[in-house]
């Protein structure tokens, strides 16, 4: 290590890192404090002398209770969870098979297909949401969970395929060749040898895909109209604002609770998530 002086370490390391940390986390703190603050404190003039905006002396769970009891928030949570899980499952299934084929099998057009999948990976949902809405309507899928379960894979499959393809390429070819000589079929070698070894990669792809679908917004906004079928992000945006009035306590409670599931998944699998994240941009 290169040795440095103490004051330098403070100026160039501790202070900037602390500023970053505060900056990155303050909005979450603000969510929390707003969610447990009584309305009387929330809407007080900002020049009020007795204002204590950074904490509250009268914490309350009213907003949370309202949210859970009087809105469809629990329903949205369930919808989001269901849709994210199923579409992640579908995408992992497709991505595993396609990633294996692209990484291992020799067939005409392999290169072209790999490039095509990479290109679809880069297609943003906002480019296609209008025609896609038409297609969803034509397929009679509008306002059903299937509209999202079938369209989320469009951005999840390319990602999963890409990530898993990279992972498969790191597994020595000889392992499955050996399995085939040992008596396994091609498919058997893939399923019994390669897939079990790829579990960390599959986990990474799955967790990343789950958070992506949990966070998806524009498809859910356009394809779903009934309040009871909405996902958390759309429900919070469209149903918690009545008319022009923002109920900030409830909104922040919703934002907080809607973030908790992904944050939990993330905190349990940080390593895998980071592996997925960094793997997602590897060429």
């Amino acid at each position: 290590m290169v040795i440095e002086r103490r004051w330098k370490k403070w100026v160039f390391f501790y202070v900037p890192l602390t500023l970053f940390l505060v900056g990155m986390l303050f909005p979450f703190y603000w969510m929390l404090i707003t969610a447990i603050r009584p309305d009387a404190e929330l809407y007080r003039s900002w020049r009020n002398v007795h204002n204590t905006p950074f904490w509250t002396l009268h914490p309350t769970l009213d907003h949370v209770q309202d949210l859970l009891a009087r809105t469809m928030f629990p329903r949205w949570l369930w919808n989001t969870f269901f849709i994210a899980t199923v579409s992640t499952g579908i995408s992992l299934f497709c991505g595993l098979l396609a990633g294996y084929a692209l990484a291992r099998l020799k067939f005409p057009m392999a290169g072209t297909l790999g490039t095509a999948i990479f290109v679809t990976y880069l297609v943003p949902p906002t480019l296609l949401f209008i025609p896609l809405a038409n297609i969803i309507r034509n397929f009679q899928l509008g306002d059903t969970p299937w509209a999202l379960i079938l369209t989320y894979p469009t951005f999840l499959i390319p990602f999963c395929t890409w990530l898993l393809m990279g992972y498969f390429k790191t597994i020595p070819k000889e392992l499955e060749e050996c399995a085939r000589v040992d008596g396994a079929t091609r498919f058997g070698a893939m399923a019994r040898i390669i897939f079990p070894i790829a579990v960390p990669g599959i986990l990474s792809a799955g967790i990343f895909a789950f958070t992506l679908s949990w966070n998806e917004f524009i498809y859910a906004l356009v394809f779903i109209s009934s309040p009871e079928r909405k996902t958390v992000p759309v429900g919070v945006v469209s149903e918690l604002i009545r008319g022009d009035i923002y109920f900030w306590g409830q909104l922040m409670a919703g934002a907080l609770l809607g973030s908790v599931p992904v944050a939990l998944v993330y905190s349990f699998f940080v390593e895998y998530y980071v592996a997925g994240l960094t793997g997602s941009v590897k060429g």
């Binding site: 392992l175 050996c178 008596g183 396994a184 040898i193």
Partner: peptide, 20 residues
């Protein structure tokens, strides 16, 4: 014939032991 039906066994340079 696929490899599995040839009744052969093979030892590879990198051993190819199944890590799991």
């Amino acid at each position: 014939l696929p490899p599995k039906d040839r009744d052969i066994a093979m030892v590879f340079q990198n051993y190819a032991l199944y890590p799991h």
